[in-house]
Each structure stands twice: as C-alpha cells, then as structure tokens.
C-alpha cells in the first residue's frame, strides 16, 4: 500500500480506469455464466460435468479479480500474499481429499 503513505497524493486526479475495467470483466463473466447455464444442456453426463467445471473455473477467475484488484492483494508484499493464499490452498486440498477419498463412503453410509 505504498502510495497511501505518501503525502503528495493530496489533490491528485482519480485513478479509476483500472477499477472500472475489473467491474466490466466481472460483469461479462457473470453474463457468460448465464449463457452457459441456459445454452449447454445438462441432460448428458458430459454436458453436466462440462457445465460444472466451467462454472467453477469462472468462479475462480472472478475471485482472482476481486481478491487481486478490489482487495488489492496483488500489490501487497510477497509474504503477505502467501499468508493469505496458502491457507486457502489447504482448504481446496481438504475439499479435493474429501471428494476423492470420503465422498463415496459418505454416500454409502447415510
């Protein structure tokens, strides 16, 4: 957050072009998700899993923009970035492990 410390920022012109660009990216991705939801049929197994994978992929693209640009994490120092990202990677790992090793078992016993 280097520039928040400086005093020379007072009376500066707004630097909002980048932020509005991110807004349009998020909006377009959401619109694409709607198109996918209604244009790809889920009746075949292929279509169903294609849809689910695309949705999850696009969700991660959106969260990258929100966390990176809106929450400014992209511009923090490296140790800060990893402090936040590594625990989240562990959550994804937990989820993958649950689905892969435990998912079938839970389906059987409940």
């Amino acid at each position: 957050m280097g520039h928040s410390v400086e005093n020379s920022t007072e009376g500066q012109k707004p630097q909002t072009k980048e932020l509005w660009k991110v807004f349009w990216i998020l909006l377009v991705i959401t619109a694409v998700e709607f198109v996918i939801a209604f244009q790809i049929s889920s009746d075949s197994d292929f279509g169903k899993w294609l849809k689910i994978s695309l949705f999850i992929l696009l969700t991660f693209v959106k969260s990258f923009y929100i966390v990176g640009n809106f929450m400014h994490l992209r511009h923090e120092v490296k140790s800060m970035i990893w402090t936040i990202v590594i625990p989240v990677v562990f959550v994804v790992w937990l989820l993958a492990a649950l689905v892969y090793f435990e998912g079938g078992y839970i389906g059987e016993v409940r």
């Binding site: 920022t9 007072e10 707004p14 909002t16 932020l19």
Partner: peptide, 10 residues
Amino acid sequence: VLAVEAGHRK
C-alpha cells in the same frame, strides 16, 4: 473500491 481510492487521495 472507489471510496478506498478516494481515501488514498484524501
């Protein structure tokens, strides 16, 4: 985020 940006400019 525009409010945050305005805060940077005080």
